[in-house]
């Protein structure tokens, strides 16, 4: 579904991505791991059009996304959660999720201004689908609360619900388990495994237990280069991966970060 071919990104003298290639298909969870500053978030930024690669291509369903702009992604069926939570503090949980559904909204500016029935119906539908997405993640009971007033673990779920609301085909998760308790992390793992039934998932994560248990394949980045790729077992046994992580304990680093 998504194919990245030899993507290179330079920020001044720093090469954040160095000829990175990878691909992910529906029904699959691709893990992207690597030490801090390895280029994982930058890879997502390239896919989303926030950063233009100096060279290399991004293809979606065989079509090249040459000048993709971030706001066009939702329409292509790509959703992403941000490192941290990236929720809108001034919106309730329900509203946060409803914005995630906005490309399904049909009412135009005029019917919104005049409060026409068309606008109301569209809102009612959006609300119903949003509640459905929230139901799946068990957050309907906080629907009316300001999003950032909630415990961090719940906020993480809200941001996942927002991304899922639009029924994406490709989901990019940037550290969905950071800051979670180990019980919450186990739940997050189950959620991700469930999601991969009907979409492609790319998972950036520092928690090795989680990565090893939910990913079908893993790509390891270090200083912007792919230093290993393969099944969780292959990657785990790869000595260069261990070397890259030296200084960051391989198991469960970043439990605090």
């Amino acid at each position: 579904m998504l194919k990245v071919t030899e993507a290179t990104v330079r920020f001044g003298g720093l090469t954040a991505l160095d000829s990175v290639s990878l691909s992910v298909d529906a029904g699959e969870v691709l893990g992207v791991i690597g030490p801090n500053g390895a280029g994982k978030t930058t890879l997502f930024n390239v896919i989303c059009g926030f950063v233009r690669p100096n060279s290399g291509t991004i293809e979606m369903d065989g079509r090249r996304l040459a000048r993709i702009r971030p706001h066009q992604l939702a329409g292509l069926g790509v959703a992403r959660t941000l490192q941290g939570v990236g929720l809108w503090p001034g919106l309730t949980v329900l509203e946060n999720v409803m914005v995630g559904l906005r490309h399904q909204a049909r009412a135009g500016l005029v019917s919104a201004l005049l409060g026409l029935p068309r606008s109301d119906r569209s809102e009612v539908d959006l609300r119903a689908s949003a509640l459905e997405a929230m139901e799946r993640l068990g957050i309907t009971d906080v629907a009316g609360r300001p999003a950032t007033s909630l415990p961090y673990g719940i906020q993480k779920r809200v941001s996942l619900a927002r991304a899922l609301a639009g029924s994406p085909r490709l989901l990019l998760l940037d550290e969905p388990a950071s800051g979670l308790s180990s019980a919450e992390m186990t739940e997050m793992g189950e959620i991700i495994t469930g999601l991969a039934q009907d979409m492609a998932v790319m998972l950036v994560e520092h928690h090795m237990d989680l990565v090893m248990s939910v990913c079908h394949r893993i790509t390891v980045l270090d200083f912007g280069r792919v230093i290993a790729a393969g099944s969780p077992a292959e990657v785990r046994d790869n000595p260069s991966v261990t070397a890259a992580y030296l200084g960051n304990a391989v198991d469960a680093p970043g439990a605090s970060a």
């Binding site: 992604l73 809108w88 914005v99 995630g100 906005r102 009412a107």
Partner: peptide
């Protein structure tokens, strides 16, 4: 309406807003 929601989303976080499909 949804426009009001979009206004506030852009105010609070432009990056998240554009990822949700809003032309900031």
């Amino acid at each position: 309406s949804r426009f009001g929601r979009d206004f506030r989303a852009v105010r609070d976080d432009e990056i998240a807003a554009s990822l949700s499909g809003i032309r900031v």
